[in-house]
């Protein structure tokens, strides 16, 4: 904190500045800073505890130290991280196989839909019911669609259609990955559409008209004007969708179901990681959680600047 008092050794100018700062401190300010500090600690403690636990031996290190204390020398180990990476590695690849395409496709389709519902030249009275359906779709709970979803995929001969893949040597279990892509795209479009729509309604109508008068067709206007200026919104939607899809356990459980499947996503493997007859390996579970969360963090870092711009707009 910059308001902390400095020592006597400081220059007199700095001292005067500090005195001025302290003079401005009233009870309200003190309480405010205390509350901010308290909240920060409240939110950071579990993450910090998880992080230090992941470097401890199990069960000795975990049971003989305080949860949030760093591991002392004799209990420090990197072994849990190695185990976690080994166990989760194939799951990370499988998750990426459906999370990346599903994220990109749902964002693109959501953007198309929003463009059509905002800038296309048709009557508001026809737009309204379609928009209402999109909005309603956001609020359908995933739990309510699990049974119809599995029945639907049971009735679709997807595995037969994909025969060339199996002939090429891909395990048949990867049908589940394709199913996950389609399902996540379908359930992701409504929220993506609504996010993009909010952005496109603020786009200058005159600019779109100018582009049309400049000779661009409706599709060209999207390609050359609307798509490039939606980058900040794409960052928001990509981060949001990727995190949702990567972390989703429910659909993965229904469509792929077992962690032993070659197509098991990281969430399924993580659920069973460190569980055994002898008890729970907390250190391994913590390391696994951090490894599984890493891609979502990377996405945040990659699109962070655009994300901030998109949220602000």
């Amino acid at each position: 904190m910059s308001d902390a008092p400095t020592t006597d050794g400081e220059q007199s100018g700095a001292l005067a500045g500090v005195r001025e700062d302290l003079a401005g401190l009233d009870g309200y300010r003190v309480a405010l800073y205390a509350a901010v500090l308290g909240l920060t600690a409240f939110y950071l403690t579990p993450i910090e505890s998880g992080l230090v636990t992941a470097f401890k031996t199990n069960p000795e290190g975990v049971s003989s130290t305080l949860p949030f204390a760093p591991p002392p020398g004799e209990f420090f180990t990197l072994e849990k991280w190695e185990t976690a990476v080994q166990a989760l590695g194939r799951g990370m690849v499988n998750s990426a196989l459906y999370a990346v395409p599903a994220t990109v496709i749902s964002a693109l389709l959501g953007s198309f839909a929003a463009y059509g519902l905002t800038q296309a030249d048709w009557r508001a009275r026809y737009k309204a019911p379609i928009l209402a359906m999109f909005v309603a779709a956001i609020f359908i709970p995933y739990q309510a669609v699990l049974v119809p979803l599995s029945q639907f995929w049971g009735s679709v001969p997807l595995a037969e259609v994909l025969t060339p893949l199996w002939v090429a040597g891909v395990p048949r279990a990867y049908t589940g990955v394709i199913e996950l892509i389609v399902t996540h795209v379908a359930y992701g479009i409504p929220i993506c559409m609504v996010l993009f729509r909010g952005y496109y309604t603020t786009v200058s109508e005159e600019m779109i008209e100018a582009a049309r008068l400049d000779g661009a067709t409706f599709a060209r206007v999207y390609r050359r004007i609307v798509f490039p200026i939606s980058t900040p919104m794409f960052a928001v939607v990509l981060i949001y969708q990727f995190t949702q899809i990567w972390n989703d356990l429910l659909f993965a459980l229904i469509l792929v179901s077992t962690e032993s499947s070659p197509a098991a996503p990281v969430v399924l493997i993580l659920a069973g990681l460190g569980e055994s007859q002898e008890g729970q390996d907390f250190a391994l579970r913590m390391a696994g959680a951090f490894v599984a969360a890493l891609p979502t963090l990377i996405v945040y870092v990659l699109f962070g600047d655009e994300f901030a711009e998109g949220v602000a707009s």
Binding site: E206, M207, A211, R212, L213, I229
Partner: peptide, 17 residues
């Protein structure tokens, strides 16, 4: 259609890309 009319327009808000 507007794009086929061979007309150019200058808008009040300039409407630059």
């Amino acid at each position: 259609k507007p794009q086929n009319r061979d007309i150019a327009m200058v808008f009040q808000s300039y409407a630059l890309y």
